[in-house]
Protein backbone atom coordinates (compact mmCIF):
# COMPACT_ATOMS: atom_id res chain seq x y z
CA UNK A 1 0.00 0.00 0.00
CA UNK A 2 1.50 3.33 -1.04
CA UNK A 3 1.16 6.68 0.59
CA UNK A 4 -1.37 7.95 -1.94
CA UNK A 5 -3.61 5.00 -1.15
CA UNK A 6 -3.60 5.95 2.50
CA UNK A 7 -4.63 9.54 1.90
CA UNK A 8 -7.32 8.70 -0.61
CA UNK A 9 -8.78 6.13 1.79
CA UNK A 10 -9.12 8.53 4.71
CA UNK A 11 -11.85 10.91 3.63
CA UNK A 12 -12.53 12.22 7.14
CA UNK A 13 -9.38 14.34 6.88
CA UNK A 14 -9.42 17.13 4.39
CA UNK A 15 -5.81 16.66 3.45
CA UNK A 16 -6.15 16.98 -0.29
CA UNK A 17 -4.14 14.17 -1.73
CA UNK A 18 -2.80 16.20 -4.59
CA UNK A 19 -1.30 19.30 -2.98
CA UNK A 20 0.24 18.30 0.41
CA UNK A 21 0.32 22.03 1.10
CA UNK A 22 2.62 22.76 4.06
CA UNK A 23 3.18 26.47 3.53
CA UNK A 24 2.00 29.11 5.95
CA UNK A 25 -1.27 30.84 5.21
CA UNK A 26 -0.67 34.19 6.97
CA UNK A 27 -4.01 35.74 6.05
CA UNK A 28 -6.14 32.87 7.14
CA UNK A 29 -8.54 33.68 10.01
CA UNK A 30 -6.73 31.75 12.73
CA UNK A 31 -3.34 33.19 11.83
CA UNK A 32 -4.66 36.74 11.85
CA UNK A 33 -6.30 36.27 15.22
CA UNK A 34 -3.17 34.72 16.68
CA UNK A 35 -1.04 37.53 15.29
CA UNK A 36 -3.40 40.17 16.65
CA UNK A 37 -3.43 38.65 20.16
CA UNK A 38 0.35 38.26 20.21
CA UNK A 39 0.69 41.91 19.20
CA UNK A 40 -1.77 42.92 21.91
CA UNK A 41 0.23 41.19 24.66
CA UNK A 42 3.34 42.99 23.43
CA UNK A 43 1.65 46.36 23.55
CA UNK A 44 0.27 45.70 27.03
CA UNK A 45 3.67 44.57 28.28
CA UNK A 46 5.24 47.78 26.98
CA UNK A 47 2.43 49.89 28.48
CA UNK A 48 2.89 48.20 31.85
CA UNK A 49 6.56 49.10 31.93
CA UNK A 50 6.07 52.74 30.91
CA UNK A 51 5.47 54.03 34.47
CA UNK A 52 8.49 52.16 35.82
CA UNK A 53 10.86 53.38 33.15
CA UNK A 54 9.58 56.94 33.18
CA UNK A 55 10.03 57.10 36.95
CA UNK A 56 13.55 55.74 36.75
CA UNK A 57 14.31 58.13 33.88
CA UNK A 58 13.05 61.14 35.83
CA UNK A 59 14.93 60.07 38.93
CA UNK A 60 18.18 59.76 37.02
CA UNK A 61 17.74 63.11 35.26
CA UNK A 62 16.39 65.16 38.17
CA UNK A 63 18.02 63.38 41.08
CA UNK A 64 21.29 62.44 39.41
CA UNK A 65 22.27 66.06 38.82
CA UNK A 66 22.14 66.84 42.53
CA UNK A 67 23.54 63.58 43.82
CA UNK A 68 26.97 64.25 45.30
CA UNK A 69 28.93 63.64 48.48
CA UNK A 70 27.41 66.61 50.25
CA UNK A 71 23.89 65.46 49.45
CA UNK A 72 24.33 62.05 51.02
CA UNK A 73 26.30 63.19 54.08
CA UNK A 74 25.13 66.67 55.11
CA UNK A 75 22.17 67.62 57.27
CA UNK A 76 18.98 69.00 55.67
CA UNK A 77 19.09 72.74 54.90
CA UNK A 78 16.68 75.21 56.46
CA UNK A 79 14.28 77.22 54.34
CA UNK A 80 16.49 79.69 52.48
CA UNK A 81 19.77 77.92 52.99
CA UNK A 82 21.61 76.57 49.94
CA UNK A 83 23.36 73.21 49.76
CA UNK A 84 22.81 70.64 52.47
CA UNK A 85 21.76 67.01 52.12
CA UNK A 86 19.99 64.14 53.77
CA UNK A 87 22.68 62.06 55.48
CA UNK A 88 20.59 61.75 58.62
CA UNK A 89 17.63 60.48 56.61
CA UNK A 90 19.71 57.75 54.95
CA UNK A 91 20.97 56.60 58.34
CA UNK A 92 17.48 56.81 59.83
CA UNK A 93 15.94 54.74 57.06
CA UNK A 94 18.69 52.13 57.27
CA UNK A 95 18.41 51.92 61.08
CA UNK A 96 14.62 51.66 61.13
CA UNK A 97 14.49 49.12 58.30
CA UNK A 98 17.23 47.25 60.17
CA UNK A 99 15.20 47.23 63.40
CA UNK A 100 12.12 46.11 61.47
CA UNK A 101 14.10 43.30 59.83
CA UNK A 102 15.55 42.17 63.16
CA UNK A 103 12.05 41.96 64.60
CA UNK A 104 10.11 40.55 61.66
CA UNK A 105 12.55 37.99 60.26
CA UNK A 106 12.85 35.78 63.37
CA UNK A 107 9.13 35.98 64.13
CA UNK A 108 8.20 35.46 60.50
CA UNK A 109 10.60 32.57 60.03
CA UNK A 110 9.44 30.68 63.10
CA UNK A 111 5.81 31.32 62.24
CA UNK A 112 6.46 30.03 58.73
CA UNK A 113 8.14 26.91 60.10
CA UNK A 114 5.05 26.26 62.18
CA UNK A 115 2.73 26.87 59.23
CA UNK A 116 4.74 24.91 56.69
CA UNK A 117 6.05 21.97 58.67
CA UNK A 118 5.08 21.60 62.29
CA UNK A 119 1.32 21.67 62.07
CA UNK A 120 0.10 22.96 58.70
CA UNK A 121 -3.52 21.85 59.08
CA UNK A 122 -4.21 22.87 62.66
CA UNK A 123 -6.86 25.46 63.50
CA UNK A 124 -4.15 27.80 64.73
CA UNK A 125 -2.19 27.49 61.49
CA UNK A 126 -5.24 28.04 59.32
CA UNK A 127 -6.23 31.09 61.34
CA UNK A 128 -2.70 32.51 61.33
CA UNK A 129 -2.37 31.98 57.58
CA UNK A 130 -5.67 33.71 56.95
CA UNK A 131 -4.75 36.62 59.19
CA UNK A 132 -1.34 36.96 57.53
CA UNK A 133 -3.08 37.21 54.16
CA UNK A 134 -5.44 39.85 55.53
CA UNK A 135 -2.49 41.73 57.00
CA UNK A 136 -0.69 41.91 53.61
CA UNK A 137 -3.44 44.28 52.51
CA UNK A 138 -3.44 46.18 55.79
CA UNK A 139 -3.41 49.97 55.24
CA UNK A 140 0.06 51.03 56.26
CA UNK A 141 -1.16 54.18 57.96
CA UNK A 142 -3.11 52.03 60.41
CA UNK A 143 0.09 50.23 61.35
CA UNK A 144 1.44 53.67 62.17
CA UNK A 145 -1.59 54.60 64.25
CA UNK A 146 -1.44 51.28 66.06
CA UNK A 147 2.21 51.69 67.02
CA UNK A 148 1.56 55.34 67.88
CA UNK A 149 -0.95 54.20 70.47
CA UNK A 150 1.14 51.27 71.65
CA UNK A 151 4.58 52.88 71.81
CA UNK A 152 4.69 56.61 71.10
CA UNK A 153 2.00 57.43 73.63
CA UNK A 154 3.37 55.13 76.31
CA UNK A 155 7.01 56.14 75.79
CA UNK A 156 5.97 59.80 75.40
CA UNK A 157 8.22 60.32 72.39
CA UNK A 158 8.42 59.62 68.69
CA UNK A 159 11.32 57.27 68.16
CA UNK A 160 13.30 55.14 65.72
CA UNK A 161 12.23 52.15 67.78
CA UNK A 162 8.55 52.88 67.20
CA UNK A 163 9.24 53.44 63.51
CA UNK A 164 11.02 50.11 63.30
CA UNK A 165 8.15 48.30 65.01
CA UNK A 166 5.60 49.89 62.66
CA UNK A 167 7.62 48.75 59.66
CA UNK A 168 7.99 45.30 61.20
CA UNK A 169 4.20 44.97 61.43
CA UNK A 170 4.03 45.64 57.71
CA UNK A 171 6.91 43.33 56.80
CA UNK A 172 5.76 40.39 58.87
CA UNK A 173 2.94 38.98 56.69
CA UNK A 174 5.04 39.16 53.52
CA UNK A 175 7.87 37.29 55.20
CA UNK A 176 5.61 34.67 56.78
CA UNK A 177 3.78 33.86 53.57
CA UNK A 178 6.87 33.86 51.35
CA UNK A 179 8.86 31.72 53.78
CA UNK A 180 5.97 29.30 54.19
CA UNK A 181 5.66 29.02 50.43
CA UNK A 182 9.41 28.44 50.07
CA UNK A 183 9.42 25.74 52.74
CA UNK A 184 6.36 23.89 51.49
CA UNK A 185 7.92 23.62 48.04
CA UNK A 186 10.89 21.67 49.45
CA UNK A 187 10.13 18.20 48.08
CA UNK A 188 8.71 15.72 50.56
CA UNK A 189 11.18 13.12 49.35
CA UNK A 190 14.05 15.31 50.61
CA UNK A 191 12.48 15.51 54.06
CA UNK A 192 11.91 11.74 53.98
CA UNK A 193 15.57 11.25 53.16
CA UNK A 194 16.57 13.34 56.15
CA UNK A 195 14.21 11.52 58.49
CA UNK A 196 15.49 8.24 57.07
CA UNK A 197 19.05 9.27 57.96
CA UNK A 198 17.98 9.64 61.57
CA UNK A 199 17.41 13.38 61.75
CA UNK A 200 15.23 14.81 64.46
CA UNK A 201 12.50 17.12 63.25
CA UNK A 202 14.59 20.14 64.25
CA UNK A 203 17.54 18.80 62.25
CA UNK A 204 15.35 18.20 59.21
CA UNK A 205 14.17 21.80 59.42
CA UNK A 206 17.56 23.46 60.06
CA UNK A 207 19.74 21.29 57.86
CA UNK A 208 17.50 20.45 54.93
CA UNK A 209 14.32 22.51 54.71
CA UNK A 210 15.76 25.95 55.53
CA UNK A 211 18.86 25.71 53.31
CA UNK A 212 16.81 24.31 50.42
CA UNK A 213 14.14 26.98 50.78
CA UNK A 214 16.61 29.82 51.45
CA UNK A 215 16.43 31.52 48.03
CA UNK A 216 12.66 31.79 48.31
CA UNK A 217 12.83 32.97 51.91
CA UNK A 218 15.38 35.67 51.07
CA UNK A 219 13.29 36.83 48.14
CA UNK A 220 10.38 37.28 50.51
CA UNK A 221 12.52 39.15 53.03
CA UNK A 222 13.85 41.43 50.29
CA UNK A 223 10.37 42.21 49.02
CA UNK A 224 9.37 43.11 52.54
CA UNK A 225 12.49 45.25 53.09
CA UNK A 226 11.99 47.05 49.80
CA UNK A 227 8.41 47.78 50.70
CA UNK A 228 9.29 48.96 54.20
CA UNK A 229 12.11 51.24 53.00
CA UNK A 230 9.65 53.16 50.88
CA UNK A 231 6.90 53.48 53.49
CA UNK A 232 6.14 56.96 54.75
CA UNK A 233 2.67 56.81 56.30
CA UNK A 234 3.55 54.59 59.28
CA UNK A 235 6.63 56.68 60.03
CA UNK A 236 4.63 59.90 60.24
CA UNK A 237 3.04 58.67 63.44
CA UNK A 238 6.02 56.88 64.91
CA UNK A 239 9.43 58.27 63.95
CA UNK A 240 8.27 61.68 62.79
CA UNK A 241 11.33 63.54 61.50
CA UNK A 242 14.47 65.14 62.76
CA UNK A 243 16.90 67.63 61.30
CA UNK A 244 19.79 66.10 63.18
CA UNK A 245 21.76 62.90 63.11
CA UNK A 246 20.42 60.01 65.14
CA UNK A 247 21.93 59.92 68.61
CA UNK A 248 19.46 57.64 70.38
CA UNK A 249 16.87 55.11 69.26
CA UNK A 250 14.28 56.72 71.50
CA UNK A 251 14.12 60.11 69.83
CA UNK A 252 12.42 61.35 66.64
CA UNK A 253 14.29 60.10 63.59
CA UNK A 254 14.63 61.24 60.01
CA UNK A 255 13.86 58.95 57.11
CA UNK A 256 14.22 59.29 53.35
CA UNK A 257 10.54 58.80 52.63
CA UNK A 258 9.43 61.50 55.07
CA UNK A 259 12.17 63.81 53.83
CA UNK A 260 10.94 63.33 50.27
CA UNK A 261 7.41 64.05 51.45
CA UNK A 262 8.43 67.18 53.32
CA UNK A 263 10.84 68.63 50.74
CA UNK A 264 8.87 67.93 47.60
CA UNK A 265 6.05 70.14 48.87
CA UNK A 266 8.30 73.09 49.67
CA UNK A 267 8.43 76.17 47.45
CA UNK A 268 12.27 76.18 47.33
CA UNK A 269 14.27 74.78 44.43
CA UNK A 270 17.07 73.56 46.69
CA UNK A 271 14.72 71.36 48.73
CA UNK A 272 12.94 70.04 45.65
CA UNK A 273 16.25 69.06 44.07
CA UNK A 274 17.22 67.29 47.27
CA UNK A 275 13.89 65.44 47.27
CA UNK A 276 14.71 64.13 43.80
CA UNK A 277 18.17 63.06 44.86
CA UNK A 278 16.79 61.38 47.99
CA UNK A 279 14.30 59.48 45.83
CA UNK A 280 17.13 58.23 43.66
CA UNK A 281 19.09 57.16 46.74
CA UNK A 282 16.06 55.31 48.10
CA UNK A 283 15.67 53.38 44.85
CA UNK A 284 19.39 52.62 44.81
CA UNK A 285 19.32 51.33 48.41
CA UNK A 286 16.50 48.94 47.57
CA UNK A 287 18.30 47.89 44.40
CA UNK A 288 21.58 47.19 46.19
CA UNK A 289 19.85 45.22 48.95
CA UNK A 290 17.99 43.23 46.33
CA UNK A 291 21.11 42.36 44.36
CA UNK A 292 22.96 41.44 47.56
CA UNK A 293 20.18 39.12 48.67
CA UNK A 294 20.05 37.46 45.30
CA UNK A 295 23.79 36.97 45.41
CA UNK A 296 23.75 35.47 48.91
CA UNK A 297 20.64 33.39 48.38
CA UNK A 298 21.18 32.09 44.88
CA UNK A 299 20.57 28.38 44.51
CA UNK A 300 24.06 26.99 44.84
CA UNK A 301 23.16 23.44 44.00
Amino acid sequence: MSASDLTSESPSFDITSASHQLHRAPFEGRALKSGFLTGLTWIMAVLASVPLFSVIYMLLIEGGSRLDWEAITALPPSAFEMGGGFGNAIIGTLIMVGIATLISVPIGLFAAIYLAILDPDSKLAQTARFLAKVLTGFPSILAGVFVYAAMVVTMKSYSALAGGVALAVLMLPTIVLAAEQAMTTVPKKMKDAAFGMGCTRAQVIWQVVLPTGMPGILTGVMLAVAGAAGESAPLLFTALFSNYFLSSLTEPTASLSILIFNFSGMPYDNQIELAWAASLVLVLIVLVLNITARFIGRQKF
Binding site: P187, K189, M190, P211
Partner: peptide
Protein backbone atom coordinates in the same frame (compact mmCIF):
# COMPACT_ATOMS: atom_id res chain seq x y z
CA UNK B 1 15.38 8.81 65.47
CA UNK B 2 18.10 6.56 66.88
CA UNK B 3 16.55 3.47 65.25
CA UNK B 4 16.87 5.15 61.85
CA UNK B 5 20.58 5.75 62.38
CA UNK B 6 21.16 2.02 62.69
CA UNK B 7 18.67 1.00 60.04
CA UNK B 8 19.23 3.07 56.92
CA UNK B 9 16.86 3.56 54.05
CA UNK B 10 16.99 4.04 50.28
CA UNK B 11 13.80 5.32 48.70
CA UNK B 12 11.90 4.68 45.52
CA UNK B 13 12.68 8.09 44.03
CA UNK B 14 16.33 9.14 44.17
CA UNK B 15 16.30 11.96 46.74
CA UNK B 16 19.68 13.64 47.15
CA UNK B 17 19.70 16.85 49.17
CA UNK B 18 20.28 20.05 47.27
Amino acid sequence: VVVRRYIGMVFQQPNPFS
